[in-house]
């Protein structure tokens, strides 16, 4: 099965690394993956996104214009990508900062206060991307949680490994919020 996904938000919110981790975890599970970032004029504080495709079959186009899953962290991204979610697809949006909610009725919509939960419950707003990943994994088990944890170990430099438990906590919290 092919899953076409987009992760979008402000630069610095961790959307690219979230996509990378998911792609890496899927690759380790033997799937074909592609990760295509927006690049160029984007900068810190501007919007950034990446398209991640995961499939049991070889992936043809790494760039697609309709998505099975969109995870958005800011208003401009919601505006840009809400209409590009396929009918019946999943839209997860950050509800602490996004003031105008999505309006579509033909997709599955999940408002998640990731920024509030990460800063209050986990005392670290930076892991909100992992919290959102947890939400996604609960709704749509694209890869196993263990694969993501292994991906963290494999891709994070050793000096950051002490942060893995916090990231795991964030994933778990996200999974519980999706219920």
């Amino acid at each position: 099965m092919l899953q076409e996904m987009i992760f979008a938000g402000f630069g610095g919110q961790g959307v690219l690394s979230m996509g990378t981790l998911l792609a890496y975890a899927a690759m380790k599970e033997g799937k074909d993956v592609s990760w295509m970032p927006s690049y160029g004029p984007e900068m810190r504080g501007g919007t950034a996104n990446c398209i991640v495709n995961i499939s049991d079959q070889p992936i043809s186009s790494p760039i697609v214009s309709a998505y099975d899953v969109a995870v958005v962290f800011n208003q401009p991204s919601l505006k840009k990508f809400e209409q590009k979610v396929k009918k019946g697809g999943i839209l997860i949006w950050e509800s602490t900062t996004i003031k105008e909610p999505p309006s579509r009725k033909d997709i599955r919509i999940y408002p998640i206060p990731a920024i509030e939960k990460a800063s209050q419950d986990l005392k670290n707003v930076k892991v909100m991307n992992m919290l959102m990943l947890g939400v996604l994994l609960k709704i749509n088990a694209i890869v196993k949680k263990e694969s993501v944890l292994q991906a963290l170990k494999d891709t994070l430099p050793e000096r950051h490994h002490h942060l893995i438990p916090l990231n795991k906590e964030a994933i778990d919290l996200g999974m519980s919020l999706a219920d």
Binding site: A23, V33, S34, W35, M36, P37, G40, P62, I63
Partner: peptide, 10 residues
């Protein structure tokens, strides 16, 4: 091209 250079794959 820029996309082949920037994208990640296995």
């Amino acid at each position: 091209d820029g996309a082949i250079g920037q994208m990640m794959e296995k």
